[in-house]
Amino acid sequence: MPLDDKKICFIICYNQELYLKECLLYLQQLHVPDGFSTDLLTIVDAPSMTEGYQAAMEESDARYKIYMHQDVFIIYPYFLDSLVQIFQSTPRIGMIGMVGSSVFPSDYMMWSDKRIGNIYHRDMPPYDRQAYRYDLSHGLSTVDCIDGLLMATAYDLPWRTDFLDGWDFYDVSQSFEFRMQGYKIVVPEQHHPWYVHDDGMLLSLWDYDKYRRICMERYPLSLLPPGTH
């Protein structure tokens, strides 16, 4: 399917209307870049994250796709302008995240080492949300991997539905898939947070180890392209 270079599609797998409604409230506040249109695809009760995202990817003709969690609320008004600006600045940038690992930890746990990004947190210094605007001069960090809370892409690469049938490690896998195709993955410097992640402050780890082991076998670090730096 030919992609529409002036279209942005939000793709959200959800299982709770309450979260989706709030998520959309924030999306409605975003400024849309001149000449662009936006679209929204929601997938309820997908069998797995990869299957939900793959189905939506195949359905959308948008050049830019934003795969995000239902519990992510984008609070930066010029979010879309900044994403387009970054993608258009360097065609080799395949994917943008809000949080990422500069160097993917050898234990394959993204959160076990330092991560890049800016998190909405308690007692932040006040700032004017409408006045803040990202510029390329603020900087971009090239990373090995981004967190699945939000993954914006400029190219359609298949999600690995063949071995990821749950809710973990789809983000690690997709990051590696992009790198293996020669694309760069970046996290923009966020002087102020771009999103709120309302995940209940806890990471579910029950199935984490199963998918971690699968990815360790599928993506041996030694066989991956030597970083993206």
Binding site: D107, Y108, M109, L205, W206, Y208, D209, M216, L221
Partner: peptide, 20 residues
Amino acid sequence: MHKQNDETSSLFNTLAAIRT
């Protein structure tokens, strides 16, 4: 494959033990 460090193994072993 990279060998898991002891801390990682310990965390997931504990979780597996208390899961049910």
